[in-house]
Design a binder for these strands. Structure first.
Length: 205
DNA sequence: TGCCAGGCCCTCTTTAGGGCCTT
């Protein structure tokens, strides 16, 4: 079954290597052409949320004070995601936090990370920029609510993933798109996307 | 004291620099 676990973190900063911790996570399961299940939770990061990030996300120190701790939430999120390929917008960011927090609870990631930002740059280079909200507007994806909240952004990324898959099917007349092809395209240099698809078609014969 | 992310991508590049994108 072609199922993906789309994730999004809200955090106290940009780098777990400099003490940033997650404040919220959402995991959205996408199967075939739709969202089938979702998980979302605030968590107590155990560190102060800077004022500018509270303004950005709307998540305050007061909101997370009584939330479950990060270990509890990450354990539940990892169970929910299972072994499905993970998807995130600008996956290098979410991957850092996912791996760092799993390491804290002595777990390891075994699945690949698909990046909707890299795929969007390959498939829609004509857009003025590739911010998630710009892609939502440009592609007329469903409005999922307040951006910079985990569930809204994870759902937006899930709709973007479905749109990217539809675009690949349409543009290259593919019967379907699997995780291996997505990873191959996101790793390819500019101009090599067609070669990726040709190789992929050849390997399926 | 002062600074502090990091991966990807482009180009006036490749012995580098800077913008984009995530919070």
């Amino acid at each position: 079954m072609n199922t993906y676990a789309v994730i999004d973190f809200e955090t106290t900063g940009l780098s777990p290597g400099h003490g940033a911790r997650p404040t919220e996570i959402a995991v959205v399961l996408v199967r075939r052409d739709r969202i089938v299940k979702s998980y979302q939770s605030l968590m107590n990061p155990g560190v102060h949320i800077p004022h500018e990030i509270q303004s950005l996300t709307g998540i305050t120190n007061q909101m997370v004070r009584k939330a479950p701790d990060v270990a509890t939430v990450m354990s539940a999120a990892a169970e929910f995601a299972g072994d499905h390929p993970l998807v995130a917008d600008n996956a290098s960011f979410d991957r850092k936090f996912w791996d760092a927090e799993l390491q804290r609870i002595r777990r390891r990631r075994h699945q690949a990370f698909v990046c909707s930002l890299l795929l969007s740059r390959r498939l829609f280079p004509q857009f003025p920029n590739h911010k998630l909200q710009t892609l939502v507007r440009s592609l007329r994806l469903p409005d999922t609510g307040r951006n910079h909240r985990a569930l809204a952004d994870a759902e937006a990324t899930a709709h973007l993933l479905l749109r990217l898959q539809q675009e690949l099917v349409r543009r290259f007349r593919l019967p379907s798109v699997d995780c291996r092809l997505l990873l191959s395209i996101q790793r390819a240099c500019r101009g090599q996307m067609e070669a990726c698809v040709r190789n992929h078609k050849g390997s399926r014969k």
